[in-house]
Amino acid sequence: MKLILEMRHHGDDVDAQHFAFTKFPVSIGRGFDNDIILNDPYVSPRHLHIEYDGETCIANDYGSENGFTVNGQSPSGRRASLKSGDALHIGQTEIRIYKPEHPVAAAAILQKGNPIFDWVTRPLNVWACFVIAVAITLCWSWLEIWSEEEGLALAGAALGTIGVIVIWSAIWSVAGRLTHHKAHFKGHVALICLYLIAGTVAWYIVAYIDFLTNENWFSHIATYGINFVMLAFLLYGSFALATKMRRRRRIISAGFFSFGLMAGIVVFTLVSIKSFNQQPIYPSTLEPFLAQLVPANTVNEYMDGNDRLFASDEFTQDKATPPAASKDTPAKN
């Protein structure tokens, strides 16, 4: 006569614990006189006990405050019978009851990784990402930056890129080592390299959107949107490699962090724009290509827009009306 109890705490990412019992009843609660002691504020000091006579298994509530559920269903009374494999929820703890003869899969099902991560973190692909990332930032630097000392500038760009990759990966590896006992250095290298590659492409997309739309609302949304998505993906991947967070929590964490950063930048920008600036702030992105593809105004159309500018909310029009001085009446002498 033996039962196996498998325990899992909600919100805990560690593997389940297993206990085997041969003597019944088994009492469960927060108090130290129980057979299973749950450090859970939602559990009463003496919560319930499990009876087993070799045939039927019954969960029996001692009269706890929060009760229990079986497979998500509240029992009709204080008692509920259990079959092998049923999940008992007490407070924030899940306890599954197994009979020894309960069948298990012939081969252990390993947790499935993300196929893209798995592919990218193959050594060859990591190296490829690394080489492409360094090459693409070198290309960007060669295209965009004019310097008297060209070789030095390129070497600086390459070293800078490699430095960012190594430092980023090293920090996350340490974090992974601490929480997970796995560094995943190559995985982090692959991630940051992909981020740099995507970032360079995004840089051009944003620059041309800014240039062609004259930095209107669409270009602002595109700029912040693209950066938000890229950073969120990077963080999601880093969390996946370095922590044992569940997927849902990874998404939420990466999303919140990235969103918070973008929101902070937006607020900072708005504050600096709204505070007094002596010089005008105007769209100034210039790119060499594609300007001929977008529609342009004639001088008359442009002047119509300039006329409308005076009616904008920025400029208080109500005060602009009555010049009191012209109403001066001549003195009667």
């Binding site: 930095e215 007094f276 827009g305």
Partner: peptide, 10 residues
Amino acid sequence: NFDCNSHFVD
């Protein structure tokens, strides 16, 4: 503060 109207003009 300044407010601007920006566009391409031929």
